[in-house]
Design a protein around this nucleic acid. Structure first.
Lengths: 147, 147
DNA sequence: GTTGAAATACGAAGGCC
DNA sequence: GGCCTTCGTATTTCAAC
């Protein structure tokens, strides 16, 4: 994991469909060498997958909200319970007053209301507090430490 | 934007390196037709880009926190001010008591502290409140409405 | 949307530093 | 161990239908 690897990661983040030859030209290596490095980054799990970034409003997920959840018990299946709600994009355990923080995306406010109701009905949830996002400045991939 | 387009988006989210022939087999179309559909999805901006998903801990971003920020004035350059901090991965204006919510990723707690200090020094910021993430259940791509 | 052909890129092998 | 070059194969890309 050297500077060249980091540069490759940054380039692939911008456009994962670039030919290896182009990546090689950017970092001063041959296509074959880049190919080998990227393969290793995949094997090591540094690159988890190659995916597409979709405009949320184009797939009926234009509304975003963060939901604080008080999970009273030590919900063993909390992960699965939240994952079963497709509108929940992220679920984190936090160190604050509320134990779980969700990022939720829906098509409109009525849809959000339905999702909140569904979350509230999950076993072990005592309180939910939704904060609606009015505008998203940016959501970007991890910036690379330019060491 | 029909069911086939949505299916293609879901398949590309899982693996954007699949050959068009494989996508075609999955949705019952020829590779050429899939190619044309994907091109149009890109042109329309539904697919914003093809990128890689990086393991945060592999690039020194293993610590995650959400930061509530009170932006007193009507900071015109708020977006740029937050974007200038590379550790800020997301920035949203919210409808709650705090006006801005940031998602921040750092290498360790000391690094987080430095970032918080830097955010606090931004012109127009009166108060910050960080909530540290202890464990992330999941962060997943937008789930497709299976209409 | 399909088919088919040309251009291009991938992925593996072998040799070199 | 990492890099370069080469070659056969698979994929992309674009034409005509």
């Amino acid at each position: 994991m050297d500077d060249i690897d980091r540069a490759l990661l940054a380039l692939l983040q911008q456009d994962a469909l670039q030919p290896y030859a182009a990546l090689g030209a950017a970092v001063g290596l041959s296509a074959g060498a880049v190919h080998e490095r990227v393969r290793k980054l995949r094997d090591r799990g540094v690159i988890r997958r190659t995916t597409i970034d979709i405009d949320p409003s184009a797939v009926d997920r234009g509304v975003c909200a963060f939901v604080s959840v008080d999970a009273s018990a030590w919900m063993g299946e909390a992960r699965d319970a939240f994952a079963a709600v497709p509108e929940v994009q992220e679920a984190h355990i936090t160190a604050g007053s509320s134990s779980v923080l969700l990022k939720v995306r829906t098509g409109d406010n009525e849809h959000l209301q339905r999702v909140l109701r569904r979350i509230h009905e999950i076993e072990g949830i005592s309180r939910t507090n939704a904060t609606i996002v009015l505008e998203t400045f940016f959501e970007r991939p991890l910036t690379q430490p330019t060491a």
